[in-house]
Amino acid sequence: MLPPIPFKYMLPLTGLAVSAFVFNTSEFMPIGLLTDISDSFGMTPAATGIMITVYAWVVGILSLPLMLATCRMELKRLLLLTLALFALGQAGSGLAVNFPMLMGARILVACAHSIFWSIAAPLATRLVTRTHQPFALSTIATGSSVAMIFGLPLGRVVGLALGWRMTFLVLAVISTLALLYLWRVFPSLTNNSTFSTRDLPALVRNPLVSGIFVLSVLFATAYFTTYSYIEPFLGTIAGFAPDAITWTLMVLGVCGFFGSVLFSRFYGRHRFPIFRAGLLGLLVALMCFLPSAAFMPSMIACCMLLGTISTLFNVTMQAELIRNCSLAAAPVAMSIFSGIFNVGIGGGTFIGGRLAAASLLPDIGFVGAAIAACAVLFGLLFYLPHARRQSKQEKVK
């Protein structure tokens, strides 16, 4: 039994979890409102979906440059400035009167996203001892999962009832409140980073670090090829009513919370089985996506597995990354991870959009599964052997 985390550190961890909630809600909310946004601008869902792709690719491009530019800034100040930029972008999205204005505001939010997900996990682990790091990471993952449980579906409900713009404005208010809360409770953390661009080659040459980067882009591409167009898939292929789609997305998010609990309980003692379960679970869920659509309970079960695996393996990759790099390199490594993961999100959304435009929406699961199969092969044949060798060396020492 681990000793409890001091209350003074649970307060900032809670603030980080709430921030993760609003960031994840913002990133994926357009998925649940894609049809509504498209109709307001007289566009097709496939054309509007480019907004998700551009957002992800901006994060992918800017994560490392922005992290290197700010890596010597005092960490609390950097966190608060990131939230302020995020709130401004949300307000701009809610007030957008045309699609280019919405795209510009979303790019502003993407800049904040680039920094936040570079520092969130390292900040959480710095607040606690090493034995509590899995719990700290699972706390951040819980914030992301709650976004899938309540954020995305409630954003859809608010958007359908009051218009999608109101959903963005509500997020602007919540993020402002989170900023004020963290200003009061988050401790000042000295930033002793000595990392520079000269250290990048050594970081990337680490086979476990570079292996996580490869896995992240494959995993994200596979998952978002399917997930980015789950709303039109459930509506047109599975025949779900609008309310049923909302509830299915909520159930998927609940299972994301379950995935974070599994990680917190078992990663420390069963690191490699958890890793394998995440990889293989994604492949199985995507392979079953279209066959499950013929029967509502099986479709919901498939979405439940997808939600569990997405959170479980995402936080597992972050834990592996932090485990295999130095304290000084962790924020930069996480920024590269976030950037590459979002390249995968953009790639998956792009592939899903092209499939939808070509009337191949039923096949998004199979295409995602083909990419997931590449991730499984890479993980089992390259990453795990290197990780086992390093684990044995650590035990010898």
Rank of each mutant, 00 (worst) to 15 (best):
I230R: 02
E231G: 05
E231Y: 03
P232R: 02
F233M: 10
L234C: 08
G235P: 00
I237V: 15
A238K: 07
F240M: 13
A241P: 02
P242M: 10
P242T: 11
D243N: 14
A244S: 15
T246N: 10
W247A: 06
W247D: 04
L249K: 07
L249I: 11
L249T: 06
L249P: 07
V251F: 15
V251R: 08
C255R: 01
G256T: 06
G256W: 06
F258I: 15
F258R: 01
G259L: 09
G259R: 06
S260K: 13
S260G: 12
V261N: 09
L262P: 02
F263M: 11
S264N: 14
S264P: 03
F266R: 10
Y267I: 14
Y267G: 07
G268E: 14
F272C: 05
P273I: 12
I274Y: 03
R276D: 08
A277G: 09
G278L: 08
L279D: 08
L282P: 04
L283T: 12
L283D: 05
V284M: 08
A285V: 11
A285Q: 11
C288E: 03
C288F: 14
P297G: 06
M299P: 03
M299A: 15
M299N: 06
A301K: 02
A301L: 12
M304Y: 00
L306I: 03
T308G: 01
I309Y: 01
I309R: 00
S310G: 00
T311K: 00
T311E: 00
T311W: 07
T311N: 13
V315C: 01
V315W: 01
V315S: 02
